[in-house]
Nucleic acid binder design. Sequence first.
RNA 1: GCGGAAUUGGUGAAGUGGUUAACACAUCGGUUUGUGGAUCCGACAUACGUGGGUUCGAUUCCCACAUUCCGCCCCA
Length: 426
Amino acid sequence: MRVQKPKGTVDILPGESQNWEKVENITRSFLTRAGYREIRTPLFENYEVFSRSSGESSDIVEKEMYDFQDKGGRHIALRPEGTAGVVRAYVENKIYGPDHVKPFNVYYIAATFRYERPQAGRQREFHQIGIESFGSDNALSDVQTIMLGNDLLHELGVKNFELHINSLGNEEVRKAYHDALINYFTPLKDKLSEDSQRRLGTNPLRILDSKDERDKEFLPDAPKIIDYLDEDSKAKFDHITQMLKDLGIDYVIDDDLVRGLDYYTGVIFEFMVADSDLWASPTTVLGGGRYNHLVEEFDGPETPAVGFGIGEERLMLVLQKQNPDLFADHGIDFFLANIGEGTELKTIETARALRKQGYQVDFDVDQKKLKNQFKKADRLKASYVITIGARDLAEGVVQLKRLSDGKQIPVALEKLGHMADIIAEL
RNA sequence: GCGGAAUUGGUGAAGUGGUUAACACAUCGGUUUGUGGAUCCGACAUACGUGGGUUCGAUUCCCACAUUCCGCCCCA
């Protein structure tokens, strides 16, 4: 049988997988220090969990969802984003109850699925790193969320990202702004690109984001969301941006910033990376915002919330380019080479003992010639080779050799239990 | 969903309608058996994404499909 992975999926093989581990370990450590704990929710949910929260008319729901009927006739969907499932879990487990400390802060690193045409940094199965904070509407929680995104990217070594932020208001504000955009663009309809003529009917906000020159000339005079915000939203947005300024976090206010999901209600933001070697136009690596009504949508109590999601594949692309040192391959600590009668057992015993001391140790299970064993040690990028030979063994020693400079010393068998000391002497 | 390009061994690749598919790297074996990253010698594609067609004959021409990549839509 000739097998092939499904379109838009990838195998992450050894060599690559350790890079992911590295990024994920740094991320987990970072978020744990910030008081976020991991949540794991199902890979699939009832279809409605995603269709209702993301917006029935959003592209994600209309054409990108992996959904199917299971054998029990249930309409199931693979998660196309992380937030909805977490909100569902929050409500279903009654985490809004008094037993839980508020805000309730969680993170996840999870596989996510969208039926799309694959491209660089876009797959059908991909991974999102996300955080969500439930229970506070204070600007501090918005600022902290943005700050964590900023600091995490810095800690990982992303160099040239730009933070774009904007504010969407409540339901009424969005409605009024939506209408204003339609009123503005409708008379211009014939001059707009085909895509934007279509957007006028589906999602006029997206016209603001158009890359088509025919559209761009009309954008500067288009209505700005900021002029439609209510006083509270405006004051809060100012408060947030002021704090970012005080924290030394650079940002640009981006009137044209819109996000693909319907549930955002307040501040929204994207961290974008411009790298022409990677993408033709600046690409979002991290995006998020405030969503104060989603919990209610799931029949939970009124609960403000804010969060973000990182596209892990895109993050990896950027890091491999901008911080390759992070992925340096250091190889193993010891390779055990053995030669002569009766050295096999001593070899595997020594491997066991050294591993117990915390070292990465390997040896040649195929027992090839000494020369081949050394070659294998080189291939494994071993720092040291310990040669266990029958002649030496009779005298109670093994040979320890540092491969970088070839220096070799005999080591008494009894001392193998204290490898750190021996290496210090070498 | 729309438009474009690509598809030869483990890797990078050259190449032609017709008897041995170049070259390089890597790998494996050897260079007389206790020490590597050097040199030298040798081995290594039943076959050129899959299926069909044209042809006496196709890896080379045509068609379809698949996958990958690029741009758009959209998004992480």
